[in-house]
Amino acid sequence: MIRCEHLTYVYGRGTPFEATALTDVSLAISTGEVVGIIGATGSGKSTLVQHFNGLLRPTSGRVLLDDVDIHGPRVDRRRIRQQIGLLFQDPEQQLFEETVVADVAFGPRNLGLSDDDARARARRALELVGLPPDRFGPRSPFELSGGEMRRAAIAGVLAMEPRMLILDEPAAGLDPQGRRDILEHVRRLHRDGALTIVLITHSMDAVAQLCERLLVLDQGRLVADGPTRAVFADLSRLTALGLGLPQVTLLARRLGERGLPVRRDVLTIEEARVAILEALAVRGRGVL
């Protein structure tokens, strides 16, 4: 669906603050994938996804949507932005309308839909993020709780009916229940809405639960791209990049190093439980 070819991006050209944000990044994301992007702060994650919907223009290299260069001639930028939905970190900052439903309808209205159609889409989008439109639609977005504001902002992008949804730290700053809710909604959007999902996050536990594939960025370079399990299996590299591991994966590692033969590629509590029980059983038999 999206393909980047030798993408390089330099910002602040010609000023004392010039810096290269991305260097020669090539990757492809297919329809229906759930991809996590991880990397330390300043590694270029946010810069990279802003190329996906054309907010940034590569200094060199190309970005293709369905094999068409998005900066090519006769390409409608709005159509790109409609198809690739992007949510920045703390998206509740973008709320501005008097009512939630009007705010969510902002995107569809920009696409040229009639007021009625835009509102109908807004109501559907609110439904998707678990904010019943009859109850939340007429309220001011500034009266909502933190988690509700976050979900209203997500609805604002969903109302564009994109094919891909890019989320930057969607669960940051929420309480554990709020985090679970958001991640559950994202999972459902992928499963039921057939949306392609790109998730930028520092939470290794979240990517372990949600993502099938991981992209790892370090100082603007793509240093790893593969199945989540395989990427987490490469421990030394991740810690060197200032990234952590999911807690349970780290535990399995540490047990392995201490001589308990636990599978190292566990990602969830349940997998870890099974792996540890198996290892203990093996050791038990060994002793007997």
């Binding site: 907010l55 709005r78 932005r81 409609q82 939905g85 949510l87 900052q93 973008q94 920009n110």
Partner: peptide, 12 residues
């Protein structure tokens, strides 16, 4: 950031 966020929602 806000400008880009609104542009992502089709604003010009």
């Amino acid at each position: 950031k806000i400008m880009k966020a609104q542009m992502a929602r089709g604003a010009e």
